[in-house]
Amino acid sequence: MIIIIQLIGGCTLIPWFGLAGLSFMSFDTPKATKKLIPWLFIFSVFSYPFIIGGSYWWAWSTFMSGNIKSAIFWSSLPIGLFVFAYLVIIRSPSLLRKSK
């Protein structure tokens, strides 16, 4: 079960590569490098692979100690973060139109 969940979570890195490449477009506006939001966005996008690696390491550590439910939770964490980020990205065009 844990291996299947981790394989599915590893597949979330495929769309991450595209998002990571396009994330630098947050600096397209003038004076964007002086604002905090684009930097936080870049940091959150590029920290995602480290979150995957850390949660999978923690999942296997808890699995080896015998706590299977906790291992399943840590294995599912990257998938949950991916779904949350996907929903935020889907909602962002409507949020940008409302702020104008």
Results as ranks from 00 to 15, higher is better:
1 M>Y: 11
1 M>C: 10
2 I>V: 15
3 I>P: 05
3 I>W: 13
3 I>L: 14
8 I>D: 05
8 I>S: 02
9 G>V: 09
9 G>N: 02
12 T>C: 11
12 T>H: 12
12 T>K: 07
14 I>F: 10
14 I>G: 00
15 P>A: 04
16 W>S: 01
17 F>P: 00
17 F>Y: 11
17 F>G: 03
19 L>H: 04
21 G>R: 12
22 L>W: 10
23 S>I: 11
24 F>R: 14
26 S>P: 00
27 F>S: 05
27 F>N: 04
28 D>V: 03
29 T>L: 10
30 P>K: 14
30 P>L: 11
32 A>W: 06
37 I>N: 10
38 P>R: 05
42 I>E: 06
44 S>K: 03
44 S>T: 13
45 V>N: 06
47 S>P: 01
47 S>M: 10
50 F>M: 10
51 I>N: 04
54 G>N: 11
56 Y>F: 15
56 Y>A: 02
57 W>I: 09
58 W>F: 12
59 A>K: 04
60 W>V: 03
61 S>R: 08
62 T>H: 04
62 T>Y: 02
62 T>W: 02
62 T>F: 03
63 F>Q: 06
64 M>L: 15
66 G>L: 03
68 I>T: 14
68 I>K: 06
69 K>D: 05
69 K>F: 09
70 S>I: 04
72 I>Q: 05
73 F>P: 00
74 W>H: 10
77 L>W: 08
83 V>E: 02
84 F>Q: 07
84 F>H: 08
86 Y>S: 14
88 V>M: 15
90 I>V: 15
91 R>S: 15
93 P>G: 10
93 P>K: 10
94 S>N: 13
96 L>E: 14
97 R>E: 15
98 K>I: 15
99 S>E: 14
100 K>D: 14
100 K>T: 12
